[in-house]
Every structure is written in structure tokens, then in C-alpha cells.
Write a protein that binds this DNA or RNA. Structure first.
Lengths: 153, 153
DNA sequence: CCGAGTTATATGAACGTTCAAGCATCACCT
DNA sequence: AGGTGATGCTTGAACGTTCATATAACTCGG
């Protein structure tokens, strides 16, 4: 806990900036992916994470962890991606409870169709306005905040 | 549009950091406010924005704009806050279509009960890990990105 | 002042997320 | 082996957001 609960004027300004930025950015990315692929960004990230995993598959467990999403959310999401035919599920052999989420060929295909446009959006909105010093600073700062967040309380 | 669609390794790392950070932060704040007030952060922000406006009231129009939310979303949200008794609506005199969203006494009361805890959370998670140079850098960087975002495409 | 187009808001359905159970399997102790 | 608790995952209901549509009030040219 902090000694004073209030934010300084500067902190308040940054916080409002952050709120606006993250909403605008979120909306922008969301619409972009929705238009290109007809799925929300959260689902795109599932395809992306699976594509980088060995055998393009992950246990629901681990998938939820890399997404930092709840198991429930992950389960619902994978169920829907399964309907699209972009992911399929298989029981794991080692653990009878385990489910393996596997990126299908169609899912891979879809992903590589979408990815460049998505990357271009991210670049143009987040990185084009920044110079090298900015990105270095941003990396340092995000590292600090993330470390704090991941510490639990 | 950018010349190359791909992100550099550093940009990719920052982007992932940002995604994780914003999700963790969002979850943290959301649960915090949900626990304290039983409303989502988006609704808390409505109370906050109204509290700062003249007569603690704004036209739906302007409210949506300061929130950077759609009119539909704002309408649904205010409807629900009205059920809680924290906001009420009144037709505007000048423009027969206009609706004025007004923070009630109960809404104000609720807000000042919640605000300090909320500020403490923001401070502890976002600002405590940063030193003065960090916050200055962050202000500069967010300013740049926001300017870009607000430029439209 | 009449009608076409615009603006301000609301509404309902569809979708995604959260929350609280629920079920099956595993792990461990006896 | 058999029970007790933990783990992995799913399900359904409740809620918030989005999208398309509706409605009412304004504007402005004729």
C-alpha cells in the first residue's frame, strides 16, 4: 500500500492518457482484425500462440497461461475457433483430463493471411510515431510495471 | 502505411509486453472496482467524468466523447447506472433530442467512497515502480502515440 | 412551411467475458 | 484398493459491448 492514495497532477494526466490510448488502440486493433478475419483479437492471439508452440499445439492450461486469460474464457474461445475449423481438440495421453488445442491447417492458413496486416497496424499506430530512444524507454518502463504486476499484489 | 509490415524483434517484445501489461492492469482495476462498487470500470469512469463536469452533468453526446465510447455503449451504461440510482436523465431544453446525464447525490456519494481506493491501486501498480525520469518519458511517449491515434488513419 | 437529410438517442439481438457450478481424472495417504 | 482432496476442463447464466435498426427532433433548401 502507498502512503498517500492520491495521484499527482502529472500521474493523473498520464493515467488518463493511458486510458485513452489503450481504448483507442484496442478499438483500432479490434476492428482491424474483425474486418480481416471476423474474429476478435483475443481469438487471433490464440491462433498466434498456437502457431509458435511445438506441433502448433498447447494444452488448454498452458494456452490460458500464455494468454493470461481464465480457463473458462480460453475454453469458450477455443470452442468457437473449433466451429470455424481453425483449431481442434484432442485428449492428451499422459493426463486423461488434459485437452490439447491444435492449430489446424486452415487455422494456420488464416493466420498467415491476417498477420502482416495486423503487424502493419501495430507498427503504424504504436511504433511509427516513436524514435529509437522512445522505444528503448518504453521497453524499460513496461518491464518495470510488468514486474510489479506479476508480483501479485 | 508503412514500408515493411513486420515488427522488429524489439518492437515485437514491446508489443507483447504492452499486451500483457494492459490485460493484467485491466483485470486488476476491473476486479478492484467491481469488488468495491459492484460496477465495471467503464461505469466508474462515467461517474468520474460527470463529477468533474459543470452541474455534475453532461449531454449523452459529450459524455460518450470524453469516454471515447460509442453512443450505444454510453446509453446502455447510463441506463444501468440509472437503475442503481447513481445517475438520472433529463431532457435538455435547447434541443428536444438531447438528454442530460446527471450525477445524483447517491452517485456522488458512491464515487467519493470508491475513488481513493481506486487511485491507490493505480498508483501502486503503475507509478510506484517508476522513478521521475520514467514518468516523464512515459508522458512524452504516450503523447506521441495518442497524437498518432487521434489523427484517424 | 414542407419534405429530405442529418443529428441525438434508444433499443434489441448477437457475441464475448465472467462467475459459479459441475464432472471427470489424478495424486496421495492409509 | 479406496477415499479425500486437488487439478483440468467445460458449461450455463448474467452481464457488458457491438452492430444494425428505429425514432424523434432538428436543419435547411425550395
Amino acid at each position: 500500500m502507498a502512503d498517500s492514495p492520491w495521484l499527482s497532477a502529472e500521474q493523473q494526466a498520464i493515467w488518463r492518457h493511458y486510458l485513452n490510448l489503450s481504448r483507442l488502440l484496442q478499438d483500432r486493433i479490434e476492428k482491424d482484425i474483425q474486418r480481416e478475419a471476423g474474429i476478435p483479437q483475443a481469438y487471433y492471439l490464440i491462433l498466434a500462440m498456437l502457431s509458435e508452440a511445438p506441433d502448433r499445439s498447447l494444452r488448454m492450461n498452458q494456452l490460458a497461461e500464455v494468454l493470461r486469460a481464465s480457463q473458462s474464457r480460453t475454453s469458450h474461445a477455443v470452442a468457437r475457433l473449433e466451429q470455424h475449423g481453425w483449431v481442434r481438440r484432442e485428449r492428451t495421453l499422459q493426463d486423461g483430463r488434459g485437452q490439447l488445442a491444435i492449430l489446424t491447417a486452415a487455422g494456420w492458413q488464416r493466420l498467415i493471411e491476417i498477420a502482416p496486416g495486423h503487424a502493419a497496424t501495430v507498427r503504424s499506430v504504436m511504433f511509427d510515431p516513436l524514435d529509437e530512444r522512445d522505444t528503448a524507454d518504453l521497453a524499460r518502463i513496461y518491464g518495470k510495471i510488468l514486474a510489479q504486476l506479476e508480483n501479485g499484489t
